[in-house]
Design a protein around this nucleic acid. Structure first.
Length: 525
RNA sequence: GGGGGUGUAGCUCAGUGGUAGAGCACCUGCCUUUUAAGCAGGGAGUCGAAGGUUCGAUCCCUUCCACCCUCACCA
């Protein structure tokens, strides 16, 4: 941060007491309308409104309701207003749908009609009336009475162009949601996806549980944590980075199948695919191995796609993903052999490096055979994994949490699922030997002491749990945000998280709260 | 962190070395089935921030900030 930057006040604006920006004038005008209303004894923020229908239901039953002349009551936000002398139309939108209302001076009377004139786009109103169809064929509510339910002070974005500035869309998601119905639909689909997965897990005997988010010790993944402090206990505490260690404790405790929808926090970089706070699902299944888990996960994904889309095909970017055929299962070694013609199984580190170099792989910072194989795999295989593909049996050096492969101890029993070039899940035959686990903690502890901030700290209690005995167990974790991105065609994680983390802005703009406070001061004079 | 791009009215965007424009929104008037309603008139801007060059900067230069793309890093 530069010297001049530091010298800027937090919000940049000199406190002159005078706010002369156009937005302030727009808000002033609306405040004056409120004063006019108050003069007539009208509360601009009343307490409730009795609705008879949501707009969607109104439209569904439109013909019979119109024919019978039934009086209906609806409520929503004014999205458009078209006034024409002694009559006016407005578009009202509630959570479900949009409908047009017709306010005519003959129907509501002079006083109410003048009142309608004081309403702005953005205001929330309730109205009562009957249904009819206009000359141009639009289904419409003929208003008999209406009521202001909440006054909007801030103008809405352009009625036609909407809100496209992605930064404002993320920072003021409410504005995005108001004017972009497709965004509301997208987030509803996120909820739907989680619901489908939840139903699937519950119906297969997995118990949904809750474990600590605020932890005295973090673990279960290689990541830097958020650190905080508990005042009463006077101890450091951490936001969880993964659920793994607590869920395994529950397997020790005797549950067969557990899962959790986990909010995890990682104190790392932010980009199109990473938000500091994100959502995963982790599940643990006793007496099963990673083959069992792969079959189950494949069923879960296929079921979710079909339930959501009614088909097994999903478009993502330029690709169409087909979830119907059995997912491919390839060992990492075989996938590399397929892509490059080279079999790394029995190559020494030196020979592996020679082969990797021929493929123009960057080898700086790679110290063991597993890392070299992974580097080749990442460069030559991963980006090509468009259709759902399990990659299995990772080198032991790069997989410290998984059991060694029963056929070849140089590899582990682990798979990751790849779809559209993205990782969509990570699973192991879980390590349950407390001695082995302790050893890996100790190794990791050395790395931590040596400055590797992502290394795992020793969790004494978790080792204690393992000494009681944990059954053979398969575990799986997958990112919900990534899954939602895939199934909704979004390419940025910020588009599937309501309130993504943003940097603090220092653009010198005046906060609306300050404008409002100033206007209220002016009104007192 | 490197490279590229963007930042002008509440919103969507033009534009220029001589202190800024359009559409929507807003205000006024007309208009009783309109629908991106229409017609007429009007108001509104620290041109992301700070420095510099210049008689003069929104424009040129430097630095900074935020966002987007991309590479790297990290998972």
């Amino acid at each position: 941060m530069s010297e001049q930057d530091r010298n800027q006040p937090p919000h940049g604006t000199p406190d002159t007491g005078e706010i002369q920006i156009p937005l302030a004038d727009l808000i002033r005008i609306r405040r004056q309308k409120i004063e006019t209303l108050a003069g007539q004894g009208i509360n601009p923020y009343p307490y409730r409104y009795e609705r008879t229908h949501q707009i969607k239901d109104l439209l569904a039953q439109f013909d019979s309701l119109a024919e019978s002349g039934t009086t209906v009551r609806l409520a929503g936000r004014i999205m458009l207003k078209r006034k024409m002398g002694k009559a006016a139309f407005a578009d009202i939108r509630d959570a479900s749908e949009r409908i047009q209302i017709y306010v005519k001076i003959d129907n509501v009377g002079q006083q109410a009609f003048d009142l309608f004139d004081l309403l702005d786009i953005g205001d929330i109103i309730g109205c009562e009336g009957t249904l009819f169809i206009t000359r141009t064929g639009e289904r419409t509510l003929k208003v008999q009475t209406f009521e202001l339910l909440s006054k909007s002070l801030h103008p809405l974005p352009d009625k036609h162009a909407g809100l496209t500035d992605v930064e404002i869309r993320y920072r003021r998601r409410y504005a995005d949601l108001i004017v972009n119905p497709e965004v509301r639909e997208l987030f509803a689909r996120r909820t739907r996806i989680i619901q489908i997965v939840r139903d699937f897990l519950n119906s297969h005997g997995f118990l949904e549980v809750e474990t600590p988010i605020l932890q005295p010790l973090y673990g279960g993944a290689s990541a830097r944590p958020f650190k905080t402090h508990h005042n009463t206990l006077d101890i450091p505490m951490y936001m969880r980075i993964a659920d793994e260690l607590y869920l395994k404790r529950l397997i020790v405790g005797g549950y067969d199948k557990v899962w959790e929808l986990c909010k995890d926090f990682r104190n790392e970089g932010m980009d199109r695919k990473h938000n500091p706070e994100f959502t995963m699902i982790e599940l643990y299944w006793a007496y099963a191995d990673y083959h069992d888990m792969a079959g189950f996960y494949e069923d879960l994904i296929r079921h979710t796609v079909h339930k959501l889309h009614g088909s097994y095909k999903v478009k993502f970017g330029d690709h169409e993903i087909d979830f119907e055929p059995k997912f491919r299962w390839l060992t990492m070694i075989d996938s590399v052999k397929e892509a490059t013609g080279i079999d790394f199984t029995d190559l020494t580190l030196e020979l592996a490096k020679v082969e990797a170099k021929k493929l123009h792989i960057e080898l700086d910072g790679l110290f063991n055979r597993g890392q070299v194989i992974e580097a080749v795999w990442e460069a030559k295989v991963e980006p090509k994994l468009i259709q759902p593909t399990f990659i299995a049996d990772y080198p032991v050096e790069i997989s410290p949490l998984a059991k060694k492969n029963r056929k070849d101890p140089r590899f582990v029993e682990r798979f990751e699922l790849f779809i559209a070039g993205q990782e969509m899940g990570n699973a192991f035959s879980e390590l349950n030997d407390p001695v082995d686990q302790l050893d890996r903690f100790l190794q990791s502890g050395k790395a931590l002491a040596a400055g590797d901030e992502e290394a795992h700290p020793l969790d004494d209690d978790f080792i204690t749990a393992l000494t009681y005995g944990m059954p053979p167990t398969a575990g799986l974790g997958f990112g919900i945000d990534r899954l939602v991105m895939l199934l909704t065609g979004q390419e940025s994680i910020r588009d599937v998280i309501f309130f993504p983390q943003m940097k603090e802005t220092k653009d010198g703009s005046v906060p609306v709260s300050k404008i409002l406070a100033q206007i209220v001061e002016e009104e007192k004079k």
